[in-house]
Design a protein around this nucleic acid. Structure first.
Length: 248
RNA sequence: AUUCGGGCGUUGU
């Protein structure tokens, strides 16, 4: 059952949802991990009702599956249901607090996110990243920066979240300067800068970022495509479209 | 030892 679970998760990561489900269905007695994994596979691909169905059919549930369902609702904009689950969980652990925190953060409820952040019994890097992202979404660069500077550790997610705060607030110059201080960049950092340049109408810089990337994901492709399209370069947009190596 | 089948954090339409 362990190998089958690993296998259907791998299929899902490659975009083969149907195959993934076929494998899951072939498992004679799926255990808690298999059920939860199937739930997450659906949730992460936007199939909330299928995820909910899996959740309802699970023979047992534990803290991990409750938290997975909480996040599934949050990711799909159903904050009320997330809160109901959160209130029903008997023993909360750090990931479940974090899940509720990011549920508020992802849905633009800064005040609730702050409340949770101060209420939780312990915090880790994910908690700090989530609250930083809440400020970022609000366009509150000063508080985002204060939060970033106060954090005991940073990782790529923290750097990228701060970069996104500058970008979203339209502080392109600050974003550019901050980006230049990165010791390493990843797909997300580059995509963020690509979009920032594109939104400022600077197609040359956006293109330069795109061309310098070692690999691309669907965000890179669609961002570059829209960068051309929204700036009137329909011919280039069309060329981009034809170059996309997959459809989704 | 980030001990490797599951839940929490960052980017586009």
């Amino acid at each position: 059952v362990v190998c089958w679970t690993a296998l259907f998760i791998a299929y899902a990561h490659n975009g083969n949802l149907k195959e993934s489900k076929v494998i899951f269905d072939a498992i004679p007695e799926p255990d808690l991990v298999a059920w939860t994994s199937m739930l997450v596979v659906y949730a992460q691909n936007g199939y909330l009702s299928k995820a909910r169905k899996i959740f309802g059919r699970m023979p047992q549930r534990d803290l991990v599956s409750w938290t997975a369902m909480l996040s599934a609702y949050a990711r799909n904009g159903n904050l009320r249901e997330s809160k109901l689950i959160f209130d029903d969980i008997p023993e909360l652990d750090l990931p479940s607090w974090n899940a509720m925190l990011s549920a508020y953060s992802q849905n633009g409820h800064l005040e609730d996110a702050k409340r949770i952040f101060h209420m939780m019994p312990a915090r880790n890097l994910s908690s700090c990243n989530a609250i930083l992202s809440a400020y970022s979404q609000e366009g509150d660069v000063p508080n985002a920066k204060r939060c970033f500077d106060k954090m005991p550790q940073h990782c790529m997610v923290s750097w990228n979240a701060m970069l996104a705060a500058y970008a979203r607030a339209g502080h392109l110059e600050d974003a550019r300067i901050f980006f230049a201080t990165f010791h390493e960049t990843d797909l997300v950092s580059r995509n963020t800068m690509l979009v920032a340049f594109s939104q400022a109408g600077n197609i040359q810089e956006a293109t330069r970022i795109f061309d310098d990337m070692p690999f691309w994901d669907s965000v890179s492709w669609s961002s570059m495509l829209f960068a051309y399209a929204l700036n009137g370069h329909l011919d280039n947009a069309k060329e981009m479209y034809d170059r996309v190596p997959y459809r989704d």
